[in-house]
Computed example of a mutant assay.
Amino acid sequence: MSAGYAVLDQRSVVAVSGEDRKAFLQGLVSNDMLRVTPDHAAYALFLTPQGKFLHDFSIVESDSGEDAVLLLDPETDRRADLLRRLKMYKLRSKIALEDRADRLCVAVAFGNGALEALGLPAEPGAARPFAGGVAFTDPRLPALGARLFLPADGVAALESAGLARRDVADYDRLRLSLGVPDGTLDLIPEKSIPLESRMDALNAISWDKGCYMGQELTARTKYRALIKKKLFPVTFEGAAPEAGTPVTLDGKDAGEVRSTRDGAALALLRLEDVQRAAENGLTFHAGPVALIPHEPDWDHTSKG
Rank of each mutant, 00 (worst) to 15 (best):
A44L: 14
G65F: 07
R224M: 07
H285Q: 14
K87A: 14
L231A: 03
P74E: 00
G113R: 00
L163E: 05
R21E: 10
L47N: 09
K230I: 11
R79T: 08
R100W: 14
P151W: 01
V257M: 14
A169Q: 13
E190W: 02
P49S: 04
A127L: 04
G162E: 04
M1G: 12
D67C: 09
S12H: 09
A42G: 08
T218Q: 06
V274P: 03
G145C: 09
T76K: 01
L47H: 12
T48H: 07
L217E: 10
V108W: 05
L150P: 02
R78C: 03
K94M: 07
Y223F: 09
L120Q: 02
L187P: 00
T218A: 13
K191L: 07
L187V: 03
A169N: 13
S192E: 04
Q26Y: 11
N203S: 11
E295I: 12
T221Q: 11
I188Y: 01
G133E: 03
A264T: 15
P293W: 02
S302T: 09
L97I: 06
L158K: 02
V180N: 00
E75S: 07
G162C: 07
L163I: 03
H55T: 01
S30Q: 09
A278M: 12
S93T: 04
L47F: 05
F130Q: 00
G4N: 02
K228W: 04
T184L: 13
I95L: 03
V289P: 14
W207G: 07
S93H: 13
E159I: 04
K22V: 14
N203Q: 13
V108P: 00
D273H: 15
L249H: 03
G4D: 04
S17I: 08
A6M: 03
T245P: 11
R21T: 15
S12Q: 12
E75F: 02
N203K: 06
G132L: 06
V155L: 10
A117F: 00
L291M: 08
H300E: 09
D200L: 15
E295N: 08
L150W: 03
G251N: 02
L144A: 03
V134D: 04
V36D: 02
